[in-house]
Every structure is written in C-alpha cells, then in structure tokens.
C-alpha cells in the first residue's frame, strides 16, 4: 500500500503544519495592529482548519471551508476595509490600556486552560458502533431527508440576510449623497 518510504512521517508533518498554520493565523489575526493583516491571519487560520477537517475524515467540509471562508468571507471583509478604511491607532491612555489587556489575557488563559483540560481529561465515551462513514453521499442523503427543513430555512436566512444587507447599505447612501 505504502509505496513511498516514510509516508507516515510526511502525514504527521502535514498535520503539525496545519496545526501551526491555524495557531499562527489566529495569533496574526488578533495581535497585528493593521486590520488588513488580521484578515490575512483569518485566511491562514481557515487554510489550517481546512487541513484539519481533511484529517478528520471530511474532505467536503475542507473544501467548503476554503470556498466560504477564504473565498467569500475574507474577500468581503477586504472590500469593507477598502470602503471604510479603518486606521487602528493606539491613542487611549496607556495605563488603562495595559490594565485592560492584562485582564483580557487572564480571562483568555483561564478559558483556554479549562477548555483544553476538559478536552484532554474529560470522560468521553467512544460509541460501540458506527451507523455510517460520514461520506459525501451520507451528507447529501441526510441533508435532503432528515435535515431538509433546516436546509430550506438556511437558504431563506441567506436570502433575507442579502436583502437586509442591501437595504441597510442603501439607506446610509440616501442620507449623505
């Protein structure tokens, strides 16, 4: 089966690379000052997450993550940055700002520690049997049978969101011609 020698090392290296991309992208998205760089961080996070989804046996979601997040969400945010030109200048009083970031770091470390501890040490039970393999065929069947109502409602939500976005953007345009 494994024709190439050292295939498992390549796979493990790819896995670590995707984890590193996810973490580095999140750090970039949060800690950079310019907003355009944090959009790049979000895109890097999405690429890493797509790889992790591939390792979690769902290539369909990996593709969807790339299409929706990198292709749609990041590009839309870049358009909004070009239209609204946010310049993030640190002009608050530094003492207040430092206190606030120390509090934020403490809160987020507590959240990370408790969530990671729950994930590692939690008493999770593995199921005895698998009903299916979770392939694209199974997703399609369950989208059109069990979850067909939710599927239709999601499409309605997207339609209403697009119409609402158009309406909101148009109102502001009339006020300041």
């Amino acid at each position: 089966m494994n024709s190439l020698p050292g295939t498992e090392y390549i796979i493990a290296g790819l896995f670590l690379l995707f984890i590193a991309a996810t973490i580095a992208g999140s750090l970039l998205a949060v800690f950079t000052v310019r907003v355009i760089r944090s959009v790049c961080g979000l895109a890097l996070t999405s690429v890493g997450l797509a790889g992790l989804y591939y390792f979690l046996n769902s290539p369909f979601l990996a593709l969807m993550e790339l299409l929706i997040y990198v292709g749609a969400v990041c590009v839309t945010i870049v358009f909004a940055i070009m239209l609204a030109e946010p310049q993030e200048i640190v002009d608050e009083s530094p003492r207040h700002s430092v206190l606030w970031s120390i509090a934020a770091i403490i809160v987020c470390t507590a959240i990370f520690w408790s969530a990671a501890r729950l994930g590692v040490l939690g008493d999770w039970t593995t199921p005895a049997i698998r009903l299916n393999d979770g392939t694209i065929q199974d997703i399609g069947v369950s989208l059109l049978s069990t979850y067909s109502m939710a599927f239709e409602v999601i499409s309605l939500v997207l339609l209403v969101a697009i119409l609402g976005a158009l309406a909101i953007a148009r109102i502001g345009r009339h006020r300041h011609p």
């Binding site: 996810t22 999140s26 949060v30 770091i105 969530a115 990671a116």
Partner: peptide, 12 residues
C-alpha cells in the same frame, strides 16, 4: 486543544 486555543484567541 487547537480549538480551545483558537476560542481563547478569538475572545481576546
């Protein structure tokens, strides 16, 4: 663990 880290960074 990666999900917990991304969640904490997002809240930060």
């Amino acid at each position: 663990i990666v999900a917990a880290a991304v969640l904490a960074l997002g809240i930060f």
